[in-house]
Write a protein that binds this DNA or RNA. Structure first.
Lengths: 119, 119
DNA sequence: AGTTTAAATCAATTTTTTTTGATAAATAAA
DNA sequence: TTTATTTATCAAAAAAAATTGATTTAAACT
C-alpha cells in the first residue's frame, strides 16, 4: 500500500518545529496538569470548593490523610496557582482559585471544582 | 487568636466524605490529566492538530524523538482517549480527539490543541 | 514561662513514570 | 521470495514523584 499524505502537509510550511514561545507555554501547563493529575488532589479541590475556606487540620480529618502528606499535596496545588492560601495565626486557610480553574478547564468540569452554586 | 469557622461549615452537612460515584470520576480525570501532564505530550498534541493526520515516522522527525519513545507517549494519549488511531497498512495515523479535548479544557486552552481555524 | 497545637519542611524509603536500546510482527517494496 | 520499513512492545536502567515519620517554627492557650 502506498503511504497516504494528508493535504495539509502539502500546504503548511513546516515552521512547526521552531516555536520559541510555545516551549514555555507547554512548561506552564505541564505544571498545572501535573497538579491535577492525582486523585487525591482532585478530591482536595472538590472538598475545598464545598467549604469556602478550610484549614489543614480540618481538611486532614475530612479526607482522612496525615497532615504532612496533605501539606505536600496542598503545596503542589498552590505552586500551580490552582488554590490560594491565607494565614491567620497558626492556621492556614486554603481556597480554590476559581479564576485559574475557569481559565483552564471546561465549564462542565469546572463544576466539579467550583463552589456549589453552579451545577 | 481564635480559630475562624466559615459559615458554610456550620450550614453544610458533612456528607462530603462519602461520595461513591465521585471516586470513579476522580480516577477517570486523573488519567486524562496525567496524559496532559507532560511537555512532550502537549507538544505532540499541538503538532497533531496542525496536521489533520500524522503517522509516527513523520511525527518522530518533526518532534525529533526516537520512535519507541514517541510510541510510548502516543499510547498514553490514546489510552486517555485524547487522540485516535487509524491504521493503514504498516502506518498508524493519529488525530486529536477534538470532542474529548473540548469536553475537558477551556475554550482558550482548546485553541492550543485544536485545528488552526479557531484562534 | 511552660505546654500544646498548627503547619511546613526534611531525609529516607517506596512507588511510579520515563527513557533506552533491542526485538518482534506485519506489511511494503524490490 | 527476499529485504526493508513501520510500529508496537519488552526488559532493564534512570529519573521523578509520593509516602512516611520526625523535626522545626511559630503562635495559641494555660
Amino acid at each position: 500500500m502506498e503511504k497516504f499524505i494528508p493535504i495539509t502537509d502539502l500546504i503548511n510550511d513546516n515552521n512547526a518545529t521552531k516555536e520559541p514561545p510555545l516551549q514555555s507555554t507547554f512548561e506552564k501547563y505541564e505544571k498545572k496538569f501535573k497538579a491535577l493529575a492525582d486523585q487525591k488532589r482532585l478530591h482536595i479541590l472538590n472538598l475545598l470548593c464545598q467549604q469556602d475556606s478550610s484549614c489543614v487540620c480540618d481538611l486532614s480529618e475530612l479526607i482522612d490523610m496525615p497532615q504532612s502528606k496533605l501539606s505536600y499535596h496542598l503545596k503542589i496545588l498552590l505552586d500551580a496557582n490552582l488554590i490560594q492560601k491565607e494565614t491567620k495565626g497558626t492556621w492556614s486557610y486554603y481556597t480554590v482559585n476559581t479564576k485559574e480553574i475557569n481559565h483552564l478547564l471546561s465549564p462542565e468540569l469546572c463544576c466539579l471544582f467550583r463552589p456549589s452554586n453552579c451545577c
